[in-house]
């Protein structure tokens, strides 16, 4: 069974795969930017660390690179726990 959730809610160190980017109208540019830095469907992601207060910002490994993201950005990324 496949489960989807937003990257923002993915537990720390759990492996997941990018399913889609939620292209919300006002945030098209943001989605596009996320795509550019490697958040494309099928890519493996993993949350490496979260800030102490509110888990924002967070450190995410995507493919071979590591990025610091805000919660708002991570919420645009839908992930699935199976490749």
């Amino acid at each position: 069974m496949e489960t989807y959730q937003s990257l923002a809610k993915l537990p720390k160190l759990e492996k997941a795969w990018v399913k889609t980017l939620r292209p919300q109208a006002s945030q098209n540019l943001l989605a596009r930017q996320l795509e550019e830095i490697g958040f494309v469907p099928g890519e493996q992601v993993q949350v490496l660390s979260k800030a102490l207060i509110g888990g924002d910002p967070m450190v995410v490994r995507v493919g071979q690179s590591t990025f610091a993201l805000r919660q708002a950005e991570a919420q645009l990324i839908e992930v699935t726990q199976e490749p």
């Binding site: 450190v59 610091a68 708002a72």
Partner: peptide
């Protein structure tokens, strides 16, 4: 407004 962070943490 909150602005995107999206900052790479290189090796």
């Amino acid at each position: 407004l909150t602005r995107p962070l999206m900052m790479e943490l290189p090796s």
